[in-house]
Design a protein around this nucleic acid. Structure first.
Lengths: 215, 215
DNA sequence: TCCCTGAATGAATGATCATTCATTTGTTCT
DNA sequence: AGAACAAATGAATGATCATTCATTCAGGGA
């Protein structure tokens, strides 16, 4: 307990007092992105200031401009970070399992409602950016590309799954869009009222949708 | 055509040059809310300034503070305006039709994807506020209450519908939550990439979900 | 017609904030 | 060790913005 510390508080080291240490570029950038996620989740996109971010990271005023040039570029990288993270876990499901399509679908539903994904901070950041897509072409582009990638992979998966079961009467594109929309909506529900829509219930709703399709 | 004018441009009158006219409180407030919707849709919640709003409304600097006290209060009233407007149309469906439950469900799906609701400006505003719910308790409260109301009415409707068909094996709460989440997700898709997800497709996906339930 | 009331105006104010850059400090190479 | 380089700092700057309030003006009652 004595050695525990909050994620981004300045390290309470035994040695001198708060040394400043040069870090590889990539590591500093990651640290700043993480701090940004925390701040945006807590204060929202509109109210998050550079001072909030650098304080959260335990660093100095000019550090963001040094590593990202401008605040806006940091925000864009933060959005990319969040989408890339989701995509990595998503792709892993396809690679890991060379098992049956049905197993993959099951794994995706579990992934979408795993603690890794259903995390109020990350959800808040994701929807904060989505809330600005109409106004900011760059956010729109990143989010749309992300959604598109996911949908294409889901479409192929559903196609393979339904061909196997001899069902040709349904449009896989529609089903993939439906599943994506449903999960987005369920995440939003969880963000909005975590009491009412628990993760378990959301997973059940998503699973019901999927099993309604494949039976 | 000669007399047409954009909604909020300063009235191009034949008389003098831009008279200033006192308006009933409620009318001015509505005018400012409408201007806010336009601005938030165009520039986003974060970047919308008081000057943007008053310019859009064709009024002077201090007008918002006169009618809403602060910018934040104007934003809250704008959110309420958007949710109330949806709710009014929604309630009307229940009142208008004393017809079969199935007809009501059909009307709701049509309503949710009618031009009145699927309007990129209003969708942008709705999601702009949703994007800030984690950070702003007042937005969270308004949005959560709205979603809750809708869900309760939908739950009752589905219950009545399924009782009639003798189906007792399904949880109506789950179905209502699912439908709400699905529509939210579909709206988001439309906002994000209007090309890919057309309104017609979205309606079809929503209707597929519903008919999967009631059969 | 002439007040009187309150709606509307907009210049001025002060607070907030992103960005800059001269200086400090850590790291690496010889 | 110490020179050379790069990373990090943070006080200073200038821009942006919400809010204030003294003044202007429209409309209705006497």
């Amino acid at each position: 307990m004595a050695t525990s510390e909050t994620a981004n508080s300045p390290p309470a080291r035994a040695t001198p007092a708060r040394t400043r240490r040069a870090l590889p570029r990539a590591e500093r950038r990651n640290q700043l992105i993480r701090a940004t996620i925390k701040c945006v989740a807590k204060k929202g996109l509109a109210a998050t200031t550079m001072a909030d971010i650098t304080t959260e990271a335990g660093l100095s005023t000019g550090i963001v401009n040094l590593h990202f040039k401008t605040k806006e570029l940091l925000l864009v990288e933060t959005l990319r970070f969040v989408t890339d993270e989701y995509k990595q876990g998503f792709d892993k499901i396809f690679v890991d399992k060379n098992s049956a399509d049905l197993e993959i679908v099951r794994a995706i539903v579990n992934y979408d409602f795993s603690p890794q994904i259903v995390n109020r901070n990350k959800l808040a950041v994701w929807f904060a950016f989505l809330g600005e897509v109409k106004a900011r072409p760059i956010y729109q582009k990143i989010c749309a590309r992300h959604d598109n990638d996911i949908n294409q992979q889901l479409g192929a998966l559903f196609a393979s799954l339904l061909k196997r079961s001899g069902n040709h009467s349904v449009d896989v594109e529609l089903i993939a869009s439906g599943y994506s929309a449903l999960t987005d909506g369920l995440w939003l529900d969880i963000l909005l009222s975590p009491r009412r829509t628990s993760t378990a219930i959301a997973r059940e709703v998503a699973w019901q949708y999927v099993s309604g399709i494949i039976n």
